[in-house]
Design a protein around this nucleic acid. Structure first.
Lengths: 156, 156
DNA sequence: GTCGCTGCAAAACGTTTGCATTTAG
DNA sequence: CTAAATGCAAACGTTTTGCAGCGAC
């Protein structure tokens, strides 16, 4: 959960303002706060993660508002919703440079993002071969990271 | 949801009997029925799907039994649990020939299973390159199938 | 002033569990 | 006889929703 650089955060707020105007949505203090918290920290956050950060600045904000705001960000294309092996949704800021997939440590939950053009190409080919026009895909690799392996976590 | 051929069904029942004996589990009429229904029809079934089929032969069987039985099949290695884009779990009979991934039509939910050695190889390479020892992966391609495309379903 | 947004609490959803009862071994 | 499995209903964790009041525009 690193921090995103301030220029990028500002640009995300701008992009959001545009999108919200387009869609006729109102800019409330709660939305501004939730989005700011979310934009500032990189990584894959659950609703609870975001709510906890939000509560440090305003403890009165409710669950539902965070859910609704993150959903709005997804609809506006500024966030992606992910479902890894745990049962809850995680959100990440949409990467302007485009799509990526995930390599997840089953032991410590560290997440590495990857992009592999060759795999993407093979996916396209495979879909086409079966008559499918590819819309999106989910590619998650679960493994044990080097650190965990060194600490003697075994794959059982 | 096709049907599986009778010899294969019989062989699944045998394999299950072995596994259950190994684990000291009891063969009840409910378990036999749930497993028989599940083994007979190929495809990716939700708990409700299975329960509906089961109820045609015995309406007294409860939700919990089906959940517990499918879970037992997963633990015994005879079934796999999948989570596609809808929120519920789907189960399929474990394919003796080994692992496969899925190509899913976002319009009609048709599912094609695929296996691509080259993609598998690239995944391994990618994980290794990041210091991960691969344990498992999830690879789902969502697209529009030929039939739906011909019927004018567009990708929007 | 209107209509969208908030916060709360309640409902919904798929899944799991506690428990009294039944049943396999 | 005993321990495991069943069926019910209630609990669970996450997400969504209804609604009265509040606040952006």
């Amino acid at each position: 959960m690193g921090k995103r650089n301030p220029e990028k955060v500002a640009s995300l707020h701008e992009k959001l303002a545009d999108k919200m105007e387009e869609r006729g949505l109102r800019s409330t203090s709660q939305r501004r706060l939730v989005c700011d918290v979310f934009f500032r920290s990189s990584g894959h956050h659950s609703v609870d993660d975001v709510l906890a950060l939000v509560h440090r600045r305003d403890p009165k904000i409710g669950y539902a508002t965070v859910y609704r705001t993150l959903k709005m960000l997804v609809e506006s294309g500024l966030a992606h919703e992910r479902h890894f092996s745990d049962s809850l949704a995680r959100f990440e800021v949409t990467d302007a440079e485009g799509h990526h997939d995930h390599l997840i440590c089953v032991s410590c939950n560290a997440i590495i993002e990857f992009e592999d053009d060759e795999i993407e190409r093979l996916q396209e080919r495979l879909a086409k071969r079966h008559g499918y026009q590819l819309v999106r895909h989910k590619h998650e690799l679960y493994g044990i990271c080097l650190t965990c392996r060194r600490q003697g976590v075994d794959s059982a």
